[in-house]
């Protein structure tokens, strides 16, 4: 057991899952939400010459994906340190 206690192992996993789920909600919202389901609604808004829904589908979703992964990397490195399960 790499964790100090059973409780620590559970708490680490719970925090990991909650971070993952939050980020996946954003992942779903920008692509399937803004880019597909709400596309017609958002297309009423113009954004730097693009219809907003179209922009999310062809540009915005991709930028958001990158940000999401880097947030995950940062938060997980912190979490690994907090529970002392990082690699030396």
């Amino acid at each position: 057991m790499a964790f100090e206690s059973e409780d620590h192992a559970k708490a680490y996993w719970k925090e990991n899952l909650s971070l993952m789920i939050k980020l996946l909600i954003v992942w779903f919202t920008v692509s399937f939400g803004f880019g597909i389901i709400l596309v017609d609604l958002l297309n009423q808004i113009t954004f730097f010459g693009f219809k907003l829904g179209f922009w999310f589908a062809q540009q915005g979703a991709i930028y958001t994906f990158i940000v999401l992964i880097f947030i995950y990397i940062r938060q997980m490195n912190k979490l690994d340190k907090k529970y002392k399960v990082d690699e030396e």
Partner: peptide, 26 residues
Amino acid sequence: LISILGYDGSVYLMGWTGGYVLLALC
């Protein structure tokens, strides 16, 4: 393909990038 499909071509853009979020997180 995007040039022919227009907005419908977005499936390739989102589909072939969004998978990396799943890969890195899950």
